[in-house]
């Protein structure tokens, strides 16, 4: 299905400079130093994989970048705003309108149907139910899950549920999608399908994606990788797509 006008049609990844940047982030949880000196830049339309072993700090890094967790030190610049110091109301608005989220276990609302789940971010943004569900259904067709639209998440397979969650992450056409181990709970075939649809749709929309993973085959869907080790980042040269 054809997607409407895309930001990526006129501007390739990196052409406009960074959309999201982090400099020298550190974060401790009690005695545990999760991040020490983490930095990163994400260009408009770029897909970057954050790679590292379990406990390396990559999820904490993603949470800081998305304004979910405030770092103890450092800056997170998003389109002119320092997310490390922004007011909670501003962060909530950004997370609702400009950011999309996809986690390992979907985290769909079990009481709502799949299409209601996908439409939820649009409804929270003030759209009427009918228009929101029409838009949700359009995206669900694109992600090959229109047939489960009226089912509850509990009646879907793992792969279907994760594609529904991907649709919810993409439905507002966010400028940045944060995906934390989005295929960690899926088998290889379903994992690939989710990744392909997620990255293809993000590229069509011109959305940037920050993809947290410990798997190289998942990271290979990105334009480049940033390695996180012991709370520090190590940039790995990657080719532009």
């Amino acid at each position: 299905m054809t997607q409407p006008t895309s930001r990526a049609e006129t501007v390739g990844p990196g052409a406009r400079g960074p959309l999201l940047s982090a400099y020298g982030l550190s974060k401790a949880f009690g005695p545990t130093q999760a991040l020490t000196a983490a930095s990163l830049t994400l260009a408009e339309g770029e897909i970057v994989a954050l790679m590292g072993p379990s406990g390396s700090g990559k999820s904490t890094f993603l949470h800081c970048l998305a304004g979910i967790v405030r770092p103890d030190a450092g800056r997170v610049d998003y389109a002119g705003t320092d997310l490390a110091r922004a007011a909670d109301t501003r962060l909530s608005a950004l997370r609702r309108t400009e950011f999309g989220f996809l986690f390992q276990f979907g985290q769909l609302v079990p009481e709502l149907s799949c299409v209601e789940n996908v439409a939820l971010p649009l409804r929270l943004g003030g759209q009427r139910r009918r228009a929101a569900e029409r838009e949700a259904l359009r995206l669900m067709e694109h992600l090959d899950v229109a047939d489960v639209a009226r089912r509850r998440p509990g009646a879907c397979s793992g792969g279907q549920g994760q594609r529904v969650a991907a649709a919810r992450a993409l439905v507002t056409r966010p400028r940045v999608v944060f995906a934390d181990e989005p295929t960690g709970a899926l088998d290889s075939l379903n994992g690939e399908k989710v990744l392909r649809l997620l990255t293809d749709t993000a590229r069509e929309n011109g959305s940037s994606v920050l993809l947290v993973t410990h798997e190289a085959r998942v990271a290979a869907y990105a334009d480049r990788e940033v390695i996180v080790r012991d709370g520090r980042t190590l940039d790995v040269a990657g080719g532009a797509r």
Binding site: A216, A220, V236, A237, G238
Partner: peptide, 14 residues
């Protein structure tokens, strides 16, 4: 070496 492997994996994925 990791960078070279990842580069080749991106190419194969494409």
């Amino acid at each position: 070496q990791r960078a070279e492997h990842l580069r080749q994996m991106r190419e194969l994925t494409r």
